[in-house]
Amino acid sequence: MTPPPLQITCKEFVELVTAYLDGVLPGHDRVRFESHSERCPGCRAYLSQFRQTIEALQSAPAETAEPENLGELARKFATKPRANPAL
């Protein structure tokens, strides 16, 4: 029989979310994190806000830009001798 995991508080929970999502919380901390989340509606809401935040960040459109001298760089690149012309 394993002893019940020590509890964490909500204040501790909010500091562990990124480590939890990255899968790097040590086993016992992960158990505490998950069991807290099961019992605590506030932290469940917080975790889902956090996930939604990450989704919103991920859906931000990528910026593109190119240097003014792109043509010149490309010429420099294309005329650089090849290390192994057989490739």
Partner: peptide, 18 residues
């Protein structure tokens, strides 16, 4: 490695802003 300039231009466009 074959010095394809289109590959280089694509690389620059992909990363320059970041």
């Amino acid at each position: 490695r074959r010095r394809e300039d289109t590959a280089f231009v694509a690389l620059v466009r992909r990363h320059h802003s970041l």
